[in-house]
């Protein structure tokens, strides 16, 4: 998928007709979605019976359960928060959906155009393709690439989509300006930036290209009020464009501003028990 113009994406038209809440009500929490088929009609993401335990071989094979029996769905145009105390497995869950952590059991079905991909069992190359066009991930920290300027870091996903470099750079500049990153920093590699500056670069990189499914891990943790407001605005735009967002938002102000519902991660463990 290489759609580059958010406003013109067909998904944005389809979504505005219905309120997210309505669709949410119609989608009951599923136990198991049949392989290769979305249970709720129109869901972007359907997680079912998802379990994961870390085995620490360096500590005599100690077992560290992370998630068990996780099940939920996400629809276009909605922003859903993962809730629960730290250590409940929220970040791990996001990473599993992104394919960064492997899955012991269960399914993570993601709609990719006309296809449905189970992240839990997909071949690595399928995951790469899924990430290239469908799933965006805004991590908590920027993984810095040596020598690459902030502007290029941000523009890169667009360039990967096939947008001409000049246009990609222009759009990256617009976005960094909007996030109040001082222009003198644009040409520098972000390695030496402050936490807040790095996070804004990271957000810009995560949001610049259109990805129908967006995963956000505390995108506003190190931001001041003004920049939090900018991020809220950006998330709202994504929602209007039909993007489904699943995120971890510790900041209550942000969470309440953008999230239609909260999925309590601690529930999953209890259901299994």
């Amino acid at each position: 998928m290489t759609t580059t113009d958010n406003a013109s994406h067909p998904a944005s038209l389809a979504v505005e007709e219905r309120e997210p809440e309505e669709r949410m009500a119609s989608a009951s929490r599923s136990e198991v979605a049949p392989q290769g088929q979305m249970r709720g009609e129109g869901a972007l993401l359907a997680v079912s019976s998802l379990s994961k335990t870390f085995v620490l071989h360096l500590r005599e094979g100690a077992r560290l359960p992370v998630v068990s029996g996780a099940a939920f769905e996400l629809y276009p145009g909605e922003c859903v928060a993962l809730g629960g105390p730290s250590g409940a497995g929220k970040s791990s869950l996001l990473k599993m959906i992104y394919g960064n952590y492997r899955v012991d059991a269960g399914a993570i079905l993601v709609r990719d155009g006309d296809e449905t991909v189970d992240v839990a069992s997909a071949a690595p190359r399928r995951l790469i393709r899924l990430r290239a066009g469908t799933i965006g991930y805004v991590s908590q920290f920027l993984r810095v690439i040596p020598r690459v300027s902030a502007l290029d870091v941000v523009a890169e996903p667009l360039v990967g989509d096939g947008v001409p470099r000049e246009e990609a750079t222009r759009r990256a500049a617009d976005l960094l300006a909007r996030l109040n990153l001082p222009e003198r920093l644009w040409g520098l590699p972000p390695a030496t930036f402050s936490g807040g500056e790095q996070q804004r670069v990271n957000i810009a990189r995560g949001l610049i290209a259109f990805r129908p499914l967006l995963l956000m891990d505390e995108p506003t943790a190190s931001l001041d009020a003004a920049n939090r407001a900018v991020v809220i605005g950006l998330i709202e735009e994504k929602k209007r464009a039909g993007v489904g967002i699943l995120g971890i938002f510790h900041d209550a102000e942000v969470r309440e501003a953008v999230c239609g519902r909260v999925i309590d991660v601690t529930e999953f463990g209890r259901q299994m028990a």
């Binding site: 990473k95 394919g99 960064n100 952590y101 492997r102 690595p124 995951l127």
Partner: peptide
């Protein structure tokens, strides 16, 4: 074997 970030992070 696996995705690079998968093998390194998990």
């Amino acid at each position: 074997t696996g995705l690079t970030d998968q093998v390194l992070d998990d």
